[in-house]
Design a protein around this nucleic acid. Sequence first.
DNA 1: ATGAAAGCGCTAACAC
DNA 2: GTGTTAGCGCTTTCAT
Lengths: 347, 347
Amino acid sequence: MRPTVNDIAREAGVSLATVDRVLNARPGVREKTIRAVNDAIARIGYVRDVAAANLARQRVYRFVFALPDAGSQFLLALRAAIDEAAQGMISERSEVRIVTYPLRDPHVLVEAFAGRNLDGAAIMAPETPEVRDLILRLKEKGVAVATLVSDQPHAARDHFVGIDNLAAGRTAGVLMGRFLGGRPGKVAVVVSSILARDMVDRRLGFDAVLAERFPELEPLASIEGHDDAEQTARVLRACLAENGPVAGVYVAAAGTRGVTATLEAMGLAGRVTVIAHDLTPHTRLALESGAIDAVIAQDVGHLARSALRVLRARVDGRDILPAQERIRIEIMLRENLPPVADSGPSP
Amino acid sequence: MRPTVNDIAREAGVSLATVDRVLNARPGVREKTIRAVNDAIARIGYVRDVAAANLARQRVYRFVFALPDAGSQFLLALRAAIDEAAQGMISERSEVRIVTYPLRDPHVLVEAFAGRNLDGAAIMAPETPEVRDLILRLKEKGVAVATLVSDQPHAARDHFVGIDNLAAGRTAGVLMGRFLGGRPGKVAVVVSSILARDMVDRRLGFDAVLAERFPELEPLASIEGHDDAEQTARVLRACLAENGPVAGVYVAAAGTRGVTATLEAMGLAGRVTVIAHDLTPHTRLALESGAIDAVIAQDVGHLARSALRVLRARVDGRDILPAQERIRIEIMLRENLPPVADSGPSP
DNA sequence: ATGAAAGCGCTAACAC
DNA sequence: GTGTTAGCGCTTTCAT
């Protein structure tokens, strides 16, 4: 039988309440007593039963995810994944809400947090001063904060939940270089905005690999598609008009449809190597048809669950398992597409 | 506040004990009462608090992992991952043991299970009749069974925890084809044994892609390295002597060291495209030095945690989240190697 | 066939 | 500072 608080109490010659105070680092216990209790704990090899503690605490964890209100397929999938993960957490007394804010106007985001009392927040937002302040104020109120998908390294967040975008960009770079097999040429790079942190990182990684290993490829200046297919198509057309033919296109942003449509219209489909991000219904189809050569993906389910685990751990003052929270950079090719996710319960 | 058993009792006009009997499908309750309770449950939207139930039950889950006693780096890493995952489960009242058995002699495995009373088993073993019988007998005793790494589709296992090896082989095939960039040639394929299920699947997937998309490549007959570097080196040398130069080597098995050493010795290092499996200290180094071009990896931590989650869910009669349990096929290139895992607690 | 009451391991008032 | 005691939501004797 595993030792319990009662065993500690007996072993240390104190009462249950005192043991509890020591266990939870609550004030009002003499140094000497604390030591006695800790000794007892070590001696009998006590391990806390978290489930029982939470039961007694009647603790309810309140978490919120803040996401842009854009309608990209990636965000839709992410929202669905968060809902699913939240469902699985109700048995662990956590309630999860999603708030959305207009991307152009992050101060709405700030308002959304006003006056709520919550335990943790996962925030996907641009790296603006308002957002940084918001995170700081949340932390001051004792709220656990994780940044999601796009990091804010200069903000006071506890943790970043997302892929290493520098490594993702590097990966895109190798695939581009190797798939082109030594053929020289220019490569267009589409980002959502040159101000977005994740885009900057991807671009940096991409360029670094091209410079190191594929000097025959010349990356062009970033073009901004603002995660929108129309916009992306427009800037890509302009880019091609200005620079002439390209050997490849690296779509670091959403709005990949704008790229495939443009290439198709210009009769270049299948003749230009395209590397895109995130597995969505569209990129999956494009991969299957050969319009895209590779997709760098991050698992939205993993993002959602990892964010919740990390916030929970932070609130409980527990350590996380770093390996479990490392969001993997997945490389999807036509040949290793996973079967379409079925959203129903397992049979 | 979430409704509790007390609410059900009040709502249905019965006692706690009766509610419990209905909830756990225990005998000794009239049809009519059962219906009344179930109605109440539906009406107030009751969701069982599993943690509280387990606390009251004083339930302890006993799980065992059965692994071959071979000393491959992959198995070492897997064992370490299981230990780590087990550590995280002790607070959830699960105890985990690892038993090893000599690969040549699986009946030792069968003996290892005799007389133990346990709740779940994760088994990594060859697809032999003894093992199939073992799984059947375990199931008959009410033990949850998952196959690990290599499936046993014809056995009575509840679940397979591992990558889709057919898809992994396909992935290896595309990488080989694309990395060779249209250059024609022969490709050697190393398996551990032509009888191992995972090897058969990888080989099938690999060949399928080569036939479909890279007809310029000619896969040679499988050579058996028995997951051993020496053995692998020997058979590879024989294969090269017989077939002449190859453009690539697909190492579907462990023992990759035998391949890199052989190529090195023959002055072919870097001139032959090598695709291997599993990220180990050796494959990592080989990737960094360029001796290997790509590694198809499966996350051992994910394998361990997934196996435990799946077995737990099965024992509790809960559904799993299929997306969470899908073990990803990771493609590791020199450029996207994750930082070396540090095994200490997070800072 | 049903109910009352005593725990499971831990926390939190409230005493002393 | 420390101890007593009454729960948290659920299960489990033991009565009835």
